[in-house]
Nucleic acid binder design. Sequence first.
DNA 1: GATGAATGAGGCTTCATTCAT
DNA 2: CATGAATGAAGCCTCATTCAT
Lengths: 211, 211, 211, 211
Amino acid sequence: MARPQTDLDAGRHDLVDLTIELIKERGSSAITVNEIAARAGMSPASLYRYFDSKEALIEAVAEHWFAPKVAIMEEVVSSDLPPRRKMFEFFARRFALLKAEWDADPVAFATYVEIGQENFEQIRSYIDLGDHYLAEIIGEAMGEGHFAGLSVDETLSLVNQMVNVYVNIGAMAQLMQRLSEDKLARIIDAVFDGLSATDRGAKPLTGLRAA
Amino acid sequence: MARPQTDLDAGRHDLVDLTIELIKERGSSAITVNEIAARAGMSPASLYRYFDSKEALIEAVAEHWFAPKVAIMEEVVSSDLPPRRKMFEFFARRFALLKAEWDADPVAFATYVEIGQENFEQIRSYIDLGDHYLAEIIGEAMGEGHFAGLSVDETLSLVNQMVNVYVNIGAMAQLMQRLSEDKLARIIDAVFDGLSATDRGAKPLTGLRAA
Amino acid sequence: MARPQTDLDAGRHDLVDLTIELIKERGSSAITVNEIAARAGMSPASLYRYFDSKEALIEAVAEHWFAPKVAIMEEVVSSDLPPRRKMFEFFARRFALLKAEWDADPVAFATYVEIGQENFEQIRSYIDLGDHYLAEIIGEAMGEGHFAGLSVDETLSLVNQMVNVYVNIGAMAQLMQRLSEDKLARIIDAVFDGLSATDRGAKPLTGLRAA
Amino acid sequence: MARPQTDLDAGRHDLVDLTIELIKERGSSAITVNEIAARAGMSPASLYRYFDSKEALIEAVAEHWFAPKVAIMEEVVSSDLPPRRKMFEFFARRFALLKAEWDADPVAFATYVEIGQENFEQIRSYIDLGDHYLAEIIGEAMGEGHFAGLSVDETLSLVNQMVNVYVNIGAMAQLMQRLSEDKLARIIDAVFDGLSATDRGAKPLTGLRAA
DNA sequence: GATGAATGAGGCTTCATTCAT
DNA sequence: CATGAATGAAGCCTCATTCAT
């Protein structure tokens, strides 16, 4: 509970908030250090007391933005919902949050997408964490007989692809208006009911995989 | 059918080609007008006779890049494959082309993604066209009894979402290494076998939609 | 005899000259790109058409400054003076030139020293060339029986050290007022008359090397 | 012998020490006032109570650095070695110290050279002192018949020039790897055996001075 | 006295765009 | 018509120094 550099931390926090405000107003990551500093009522030089570079500030903004999404993932995974529901919630709750943000300010959302693209490492760890958790859920589902004949990795890859649009913020930004929890539910059902290595009895010859 | 500005058109075409070359060599949109002009053997000032701005040139590049993908869509839709196969090919052939481009030059590919993001209207018409064609295919499939209880629009939206990662070049660029026609086939199978408004007999109560 | 980019070359030349003027007036390498551009009557941006960076401009200045010294070395080495005289002239003529420059403008001279220090690679090749030529002269002297018992490299090293102050512009700048061709002549004589591995007969026991 | 500003003096001393530490760690005078203050555990503003400017601090560092070299000179001069040996030691002991410093940390050494160049007056008094002592030694040597026909000043100047590379830290830094006490000994021998106004019997006509 | 925080002035560099020739 | 040359506006960043507390 030591409190080192409380000032710096506070300043950093303020700057992140201000930057977010600016993003919401101006959109696009064409935000300059001078603008941010002006908005914060300080000189550009002063800003560098809080962050070593523009990049460091932007990273902090990204971190700030991802934090609640990570929290949601953890919350869902550690719950004791049945696998199908858990997978649904795993995506649905994050989607709900992201959609709310998009509804509130599509331009700001687009800017976060841009920032994400420019700070790819930032996003990478977020993706990896998501994969890790999703693999757990898939494991649980397999324990109940789902995804017969598929490995965890294969299933992980396929699920990720089928719901990508509910995870990848870049894709989301483009399609948000057509996305809904309802549709996500259908997709998850299709995942659980339509995904397996063996084509189900009813239509063995029509499956593309039968060829 | 008069031909007033043949010269201008030819010049535009050449400039687009040269810009594409530059993209392949240098990657990223860190391409400057001066560079393009130098490569074209003309002065930067002259370039502005062909395009009003750098932006206009880049738009033309994007248009050029999308053309063959549009051609593929048209070709598949007008073929007389059965619906499931037709839908598969509808995505698979474009994917094959895009993957080939990515394999040949991931950096150039990333640049096109960037360009796409910066010229969103450009992409919009491409997406709309894809939707139009996909709706046709879905109609044919419904004629054979698929997607019971779902409207064309609902189905369109769901399919688009499930295969988004094979369509959205931004998402593709991030996941290309894990994508394959094989997995796409599984997803299309899941679409045809797992997507309907009524939960299939076996697990009526487990479906999320049953809630 | 092709004449490519005559304009650029001319511009570069002018900029080098102007920079030299500035050096003469203002001293110290605290010269800024803005200053040079202002003096040249162009914008800082324009200066970058001629040189890729400030560093490149400064390098050109250094090169310009060393050129006549290199010419002198070549001239002397290819002459057919006897070795002792040749070695003397090898240093003396360069010294005369440098001293003239120092007399004309000590501050500018000091600035060149600074520039040299900051662009060490620049100087390195100049030093290496000097060593190469000096080794030739030493070889000729050995052919006449001088430097008995010493290798070319040993002699080269010793001579370089004894006349360093007539070669190293940094050392020269500090001592210029006490340097003269007359003293250089005495040093060269001492080199030829006092330098050998065997202590000469007259004072065998007093030599430090006898211990 | 009043002691008014003991505190200030102590603080100055500490700051000098800390600055030296920093030089050893970070090399080059790219040291900022803020860094020094931080290392000293004081605010940059406080540092200005001890030194009026960054320059004043650096001057103090230079002074501190030269002190032991001065001590060596005094020690040798007041010894009762014979002149040739005394002159050798006069240069050799300082060289040994400087070489040791260079071996221990060439980067720090280079920084001192830089500092010296920037604070030339600092160096000037050191040089003058060295000249004073060397003149004494030359006087003793003359008392034993050396340097016939040359005045003390002439000889002083010549000796200084021939051994400059063992005295001038800027020159030393560039050539350190080729310097050795052995070579210095040879040079001093050449000074004592080869330096005089009258060309010695053997080669009266070959001497440059004969012309 | 001591200082934490702030900054003015300046450094180098880039590039889409224009205009006199 | 074509262009070579020029640049305004802007970008990020650094650091010795000061001043209100």
